[in-house]
Nucleic acid binder design. Sequence first.
DNA 1: GTATGTTTCAAGCACTCGTTTGAAGCGAGG
DNA 2: CCTCGCTTCAAACGAGTGCTTGAAACATAC
Lengths: 217, 217
Amino acid sequence: MPSATTKERILDAAERLFAEKGVDASSLRQVTGAAGVNVAAIHYHFGSKEELLRAVIGRRFDPVNQERLKQLDRLETAGTPPDVEAILRAFLEPALDMLDALGEQGSLLARLVARIYSDASEPLKNVLMTQFRDVFTRFVEALMTALPELPPAEVVLRFQYTAGVLHQSLSIIELPVAELSPVELPALDTENMLQRMVSFVAAGLRAPLSPQPGGAA
Amino acid sequence: MPSATTKERILDAAERLFAEKGVDASSLRQVTGAAGVNVAAIHYHFGSKEELLRAVIGRRFDPVNQERLKQLDRLETAGTPPDVEAILRAFLEPALDMLDALGEQGSLLARLVARIYSDASEPLKNVLMTQFRDVFTRFVEALMTALPELPPAEVVLRFQYTAGVLHQSLSIIELPVAELSPVELPALDTENMLQRMVSFVAAGLRAPLSPQPGGAA
DNA sequence: GTATGTTTCAAGCACTCGTTTGAAGCGAGG
DNA sequence: CCTCGCTTCAAACGAGTGCTTGAAACATAC
């Protein structure tokens, strides 16, 4: 007695399987098996495996990216130009909130994104690239304004680092990295995690320019 | 007229293919086709696809991890306890050097590691976990000594972020992330890249503790 | 009640996968 | 010359892949 539609149940099952075992390692038969529907339903509703993945990602991250841009808009239309911490919160918080709202499923989804981000076979790359292009551009520009003493290229580089920190921190929530730790790791709620990431990244973004070899000190 | 042994040519071809397209997406026939050898040669020399991957990773990262530990040993047996920057260099430099020495192949290999790190199906995780366990433990302990004002758990968390920055910076070398950038990105040599990463990460590691919700300030 | 468009189904298609097999090629030792 | 390991090879194995097909089930409209 399925309470959700076939389409939604496919999305739910695909999201979990893709995140747990990877896209390539998850067969359509596993997806439909977990969803309790027929294989052909995937091609009927989505057309292909790749389109299914696109739908899985979009369902979660279209709202996140919209929220990111909305928060950035709000910051920029306020009186004073936003500082680094505020920009970072606008970037990080919607992602963390969405994952938090999903509970355990959220940390799995985070791994899926991190995976695609580094995996990225040709067609998959485009899924994420088109998904994030606007967000990337807008936030880099905002950071350039907030960090006028940094050359633009350095801002781009450090924003990449920021995305790296985000991906890493998302991945480790569920990852067996805790087993590697010599000390007990306390469970962190979203606001706590956000606070820590903002502190770390803001300090990194504000770090003085490293001396250029061959240039004046 | 192959100049290298069959085993080495398989490793070379596998490394490139695994990095370019992912482990799952690379078939053994593609590997042996690129290497100019027979499919059965893989199972003769390595036993299975997973063992082949293990060999691909180990060939490059066993030396890196040995060098990391060696440099850390040298720092710790010197008179004064090492500072954060020195520890970071000992961690980051061997990896960057190895990748630099490999040239274009190096940036591909970096993507492979980043991929496995987030992908990590059950058996694959163990490949990397056993590979990095010692390094992880030793460097976290060194950082705890260099940052005595931070709680141990916070050091662990921030070292995770550090690894995230490393992975990200390795991935973006070759990735089409440049296309996302609104400004021209200058090509960075290894020392330059290292300098930037150390600055960024050291600042993040030294950031004051964020206020704890519900605790005293 | 019959016709229409949408959704679901079991079965099968052509293909690729990792792996195995048994024989051929090969250099060194007797 | 023959033999013995070691290495390489073409060919095939069974299983599983993404995807297609044609018919049944269903809901709605006439």
